[in-house]
């Protein structure tokens, strides 16, 4: 048989497999077998590498635990006032598109030509920089181009981030993940899928409720105060605004979505006293204070 353990055969196999049977030395090379100060990867260097890895991991876990990852509010495609911002490492390409010669008619320069040159040159660097010299200060062209790109990338990233911060400040917007984190911390919101109890209309017998039904409010905020489709709900509005603020909103509008409604309603037959009653009634619309005392809350009104 071809595969029996006959020592006269030149090549001996394990069983009928293609694995060769031979005497092997399983002892790794000794530390001293390497020239100079080289050392074996296993185990000498690996043990040190694990220490570096552990230190890195501790730092990483501290970052992770001290800064929970952000989560804003569910995506709403009909939202029009959201300031979009990509992840930080895309900012430099995003900012590039905001300059006159890389936007509008020249946008192809910003989307294709400049990034194409940058990444194309980076990809093909070994074929462009073919000299034998490896030290960076002996390769002035390659190194200075890299320093220039580095500077441009960092500069564009910083300008983009500052522009974003400035835009938020100007529009008086708090990023949603921060807003939500604050509300969760303050107990105003239940995270993690616990559905919030729907807030009931307070004091339905009031004159304010009747005025509300006649006013133009209902066309957006709905008869049940819950908002038509994606319009804002007025349920619990008293937690957010005082009577004076609501009066101001009725007369002057709110944000970009609502214009002043007072004149239209005065024309439609309501009086200023009616609007005052309405604002007072809306200011009463508060969520029950705490889960354990909903009765007390309704009694107080």
């Amino acid at each position: 048989m071809a595969h029996d353990h006959n020592s006269k055969e030149k090549v001996v196999y394990v069983g009928d497999s293609r694995v060769k049977k031979y005497k092997k030395n399983n002892v790794p090379l000794d530390y001293s077998a390497y020239p100079g100060n080289s050392e074996a990867f296993i185990p000498n260097f690996l043990l040190k590498e694990w220490m570096v890895g552990s230190v890195f991991l501790v730092g990483f876990m501290i970052l992770t635990m001290s800064h929970p990852s952000p989560l804003g509010y569910p995506a709403d495609p009909t939202k029009t006032d959201f300031v979009p911002i990509p992840d930080w490492y895309f900012l430099f390409m995003y900012q590039l598109l905001k300059y006159p010669y890389t936007s509008d008619a020249y946008v192809v320069l910003g989307t294709l030509v400049l990034p194409g040159i940058l990444f194309g040159a980076l990809m093909l660097a070994p074929f462009l920089d073919t000299g034998k010299e490896r030290r960076w200060y002996k390769r002035p062209i390659a190194s200075s181009l890299m320093f220039l790109s580095l500077f441009a990338t960092i500069f564009l990233t910083m300008v983009s981030w500052q522009g974003y911060q400035h835009e938020l400040e100007e529009l008086n917007i708090i990023p949603e993940h921060l807003e939500r984190a604050e509300k969760i911390a303050a107990g105003l919101e239940e995270p993690g899928g616990k559905e919030a109890e729907p807030i009931a209309i307070v004091n339905k017998e009031s004159e304010g409720y009747e005025i509300y039904q006649k006013a133009s409010c209902v066309s957006c905020h709905a008869v049940d105060l819950n908002g038509v489709s994606s319009m804002p709900s007025l349920l619990g509005i008293g937690d957010k605004h005082s009577k004076e603020e609501i009066t101001d909103i009725i007369y002057n509008g709110f944000g970009s979505g609502m214009t002043g409604q007072a004149q239209a309603n005065l024309d439609a037959g309501l009086t200023e006293a009616d609007l005052d009653t309405l604002a007072g009634w809306l200011a009463e619309q508060k969520a029950p204070a705490g889960e354990e005392a909903p009765e007390e809350a309704t009694e107080s009104h």
Partner: peptide, 20 residues
């Protein structure tokens, strides 16, 4: 799938779509 995710992706795809 929060607003930040949605609008960043929308803008990203718009930029990609502007490539001739």
């Amino acid at each position: 799938w929060d607003n930040k995710a949605y609008f960043a992706t929308q803008v990203g795809i718009q930029i990609a779509a502007s490539v001739p």
